[in-house]
Amino acid sequence: MALLEIKDLKVSYGVINAIKGVSFDVEEGEIIALIGANGAGKTTILHTISGLISAKEGSIVFDGKEITKVPPHKIVSMGMAQVPEGRRVFQQLSVLENLKLGAYTRKDKAGISESLKYVYTRFPRLEERKNQVAGTLSGGEQQMLAMGRALMSKPRIILMDEPSMGLSPLLVTEIFDIIKVINEGGTTVLLVEQNAKKALSIANRAYVLETGNISLSGKASDLINDESVKKAYLGE
């Protein structure tokens, strides 16, 4: 049974149908990439899975439990975290306070400090700047903070929305390396990206989203050589 199963998901904003019946699944331990152009509906899908937007039709099953109508804060405590588009770290709070908010649903003090240690080993720069106000961090550091904050809930799956956005190529490589390491540590990753090349390079499987529908899916290694994907998303 897949860890996360999306079946025939439809989402609309008023009269506009943003997601028109999307199905896909994520197996435990995988990195799944969801690629597509701007406006294809990638962020909408992630927000719907996390419960920030409600689905019009269809079902979302996480770890065998239907979560389509579960409020977002309960979904977090079930083991799902999200690194939202544009990082959305709490600008006025310190790095450490941001990380602590990431562990908001947890009560095991020992486990939380263990997670904090883990985050600091993954992102040493966050430890150096733990008392700095998050709003003063650079874009790359804020991305790291957003990822660290998500890890603080010790999630089984992390949804990542455009982690490469607005970062230098060097930083993008660094961030993707870290995503891979996080995944190797046992956390499943659902990755939404416009940078298809990078996403396909670390993903196991991928789905291509086009204006609210999945147009193509398969192994990342196959898609990276697919002529239509190359043409539309890899700029070759």
């Binding site: 920030l52 409020p71 977090v76 939202p84 709490f90 006025q92 908001y104 649903t105």
Partner: peptide, 19 residues
Amino acid sequence: RAMLAVSEDRGAAQLMGVN
């Protein structure tokens, strides 16, 4: 802290598990 988080970014606070 949850209040501060909600005050700054309601959606992000929800993603932290804040009700």
